[in-house]
Amino acid sequence: MNIGVLALQGAFAEHEQMLSKLGVSSFEIRQEKDLKEDFDGLIIPGGESTVQGKLLRELNLFDKIKALIDGGLPVFGTCAGLLLLAKEIENDERVHLATMDITAVRNAYGRQLGSFYIEGEFKGIGKIPMTFIRAPYIGAVREDTEILAETNGHITAARQKNQLVTAFHPELNEDLSVHKFFLEMIAATHKA
């Protein structure tokens, strides 16, 4: 299995380390020619969604990545990655890849003083560490989007078919279970 990690800006190296701990190979996507490599899944890391959204467009990655996701490529977005995948953002006119039927709320917990750590339930996994950094949450899900975690009354993880998103950062803690969950999603796609 080979995972592409979008490496335009943000915490992409942390995801690569998680994958390497799980014995899975990964490579960085920084420009169009990097998409030539064969890969089974895509991770969109935390960072600033405005920066990543702009660079996706200007480095000619936007249409190709959107088509791959629409075509069923398994994708895992954390924090900014969630915002890039959301079809709607409640407090921002700019949407980006807009492939997932969720409404995100940007900077939903306010500035850095609102960042927090908590241990919470993740459906099918159990209690896991969750680190929220200037994080969004999901205001609403539609269609066949399944809620996977709720934190203090707000949706913080969800899945729709090939797309998995978390408002928190599994890549910042030692726990590998959410990444494993994503790899199992990919394995199931291969079987289907």
Partner: peptide, 8 residues
């Protein structure tokens, strides 16, 4: 962690 998000 916030600084990690600013990387790159």
């Amino acid at each position: 962690n916030l600084a990690q998000m600013l990387k790159g």
